[in-house]
Design a protein around this nucleic acid. Structure first.
Lengths: 177, 177
DNA sequence: GTCTATAGTGGGATAGAC
DNA sequence: GTCTATCCCACTATAGAC
């Protein structure tokens, strides 16, 4: 029924991923679909709805990837970070759209944000540590994405430091403190 | 001689800070200065040069603030973070311009980037730890700026965790390990 | 579901006179 | 250093026919 809408959103996402935000225009999207721009408005109220749909898709895909990564992992935080970095590397512009600017929480499917965050909370074992880890991970991928780090060995070393700092304490470690 | 250019850049910065990136247009800037838009092009080649000038100003101001904060501080990392958060809170849109997208390194005054980063390297005592701390700090301020965190107590707790994790080891601590 | 035609807005930038 | 006049571009979105 609304399968046309799904096709449109998927095409929009490809356009965004390949050409960045500047490439995501109603005209360009219509061209890609070999229709005319005004036809899009039969399926979507406006451009904001299109961007929101891309963001929701992104969160759903990320949630699945994170859940899968943490499941049965020996080191859940390392597994989470690895999955996170893959997601960002594969869809940098979608990630930007998901994280830059305010999040339209009221328009997101209920529970989606929490679901996406849950694997990290599990991997860190503590809400405050999860938040610190989230800051670290988001900052690192953002800076990497924008080419902010020299290409020496220090970036991987920095990742390792962060993992060490925010990993949920193991039983053995807890006995020692 | 080029004092007019300085006035223009300052007005542009105010426009950006108060109205966000959408408010920074050549027309709006001209209005603010009570001149006509084409006159701006006698002082600046194009809009890119204007944005670059704002970014350079931002780095210089940040470098000064960071250097001053770390100087003689009992806890240099805490002092650095505090100064960093103040800078971002005071100039969020300038900070965005400075950090989103690639950095035009070749057009920056030589040494400015290094100078801005130096206080953090000093406060962490190690390049890899500095990079991890930078990731953490940038991620935290970005997420705070975009209203990504619930307004519970966990955000300040997360800041404290990060400080603890990336602080340069004190002599006393080193003797214990 | 798609089209044509078009409105309406806003933006960056140049030429050439004063 | 500023002006007027203007160009050219791109975009979102609507009305109404097929």
């Amino acid at each position: 029924m609304t399968s046309r809408r799904i096709e449109i959103v998927r095409a929009a996402r490809e356009l965004l991923e390949h050409g960045g935000p500047a490439a995501l225009t109603m005209r360009g999207l219509a061209d890609q679909l070999q229709i005319k721009a005004p036809s899009l408005y039969k399926h979507l109220p406006d451009k904001g709805a299109l961007e929101l749909a891309i963001v929701v898709d992104g969160f759903e895909q990320a949630a699945l990837a994170f859940e899968d990564a943490v499941l049965d992992a020996e080191d859940p935080l390392a597994a989470f970070v690895s999955a996170y970095r893959v997601f960002v590397a594969d869809h940098p512009h979608v990630y930007r759209l998901m994280t830059e600017g305010p999040l339209p929480r009221d328009d997101l499917p209920p529970g989606l944000e929490e679901r996406t965050a849950a694997p990290l909370v599990q991997a860190t074992g503590d809400p405050a540590r999860a938040r610190a880890a989230f800051g670290f991970i988001h900052g690192m991928v953002s800076l990497e994405m924008n080419g902010r780090f020299p290409n020496d060995g220090n970036t991987e070393a920095a990742w390792a430091r962060g993992l060490e700092a925010f990993r949920a304490p193991s039983v053995a470690t807890e006995l020692l403190t």
